[in-house]
Design a protein around this nucleic acid. Sequence first.
DNA 1: TTTCTTGCAAAGAGTTTGCATTCCA
DNA 2: TGGAATGCAAACTCTTTGCAAGAAA
Lengths: 140, 140
Amino acid sequence: MKGRKGLLEILRDKGYRLTPQRMIVVEAIEASDDHISAEEIRDMARAKYPYINMSTVYRTLELLVEEGLVTETDLGGGRSLYHPTMKAQHHHLVCRKCAKVKDIDASVFQRLKGELKSQYGFDADLEHVGIFGTCEDCHD
Amino acid sequence: MKGRKGLLEILRDKGYRLTPQRMIVVEAIEASDDHISAEEIRDMARAKYPYINMSTVYRTLELLVEEGLVTETDLGGGRSLYHPTMKAQHHHLVCRKCAKVKDIDASVFQRLKGELKSQYGFDADLEHVGIFGTCEDCHD
DNA sequence: TTTCTTGCAAAGAGTTTGCATTCCA
DNA sequence: TGGAATGCAAACTCTTTGCAAGAAA
């Protein structure tokens, strides 16, 4: 059962207070199989809690990212998406035409990551990447 | 000499008017060896022209991107950088710590692009990609 | 109690848009 | 001249921040 602590327990162990707002944000992120936006978190939160302020959502996300518990990914449009770090690695193919997002396995990137490291000494954050392009359905 | 038309000529041939503002924006993009931001374009423009409005800069960039003459790249922070499409392909390694940007050759991505196409039918826009991580100098 | 968190409102940054005016072709 | 392009100002989106009020431990 080790390594299976929920994000909330980890936060508490680190000395952070477990407020209802934080519990709700964490729950929303853990419940989402996929990436989730700050806005979606607020909407999910509202279902369980009359109201949660966006600054609280952002502050909680900031905390989770700082603690390395959640990954922040820029999928374009100046919008960030969040994802629990411990979940299986994957990436996203974002279609510029229909805006659909398809998840793909991380293995495709392993070689690239290795090459960037050996050739440039660059330690690439490729845990959760968005790749833009045209998907199968929208191909001309 | 073919395939060596400047962006301005191409625009004119397509029926767009060659205003001073457009000439200045195009000149700034062509002069920049690297990627350039909307703000940098405005600053470069001001050196030659008393004033150019940001909406004009953005509208010109939008036009150039629509026409496929310029590439728009999201290097994070909700900021876009622009680059002439015809210039040599390259990518960027962006260090999260020192914020330095290192240009790398596009060849590293060829295999990845091929795999995304064959495995997922996804036509990835990998002309000009920003990869985040930690550079050699900042490595712990 | 006491310090950490929240909510509110306002401020940001970067970008987009409506509309009247200007100007290229 | 006439439609395309510009400038201006206001709006817009997403996110951050200061500060007083509230609540977890």
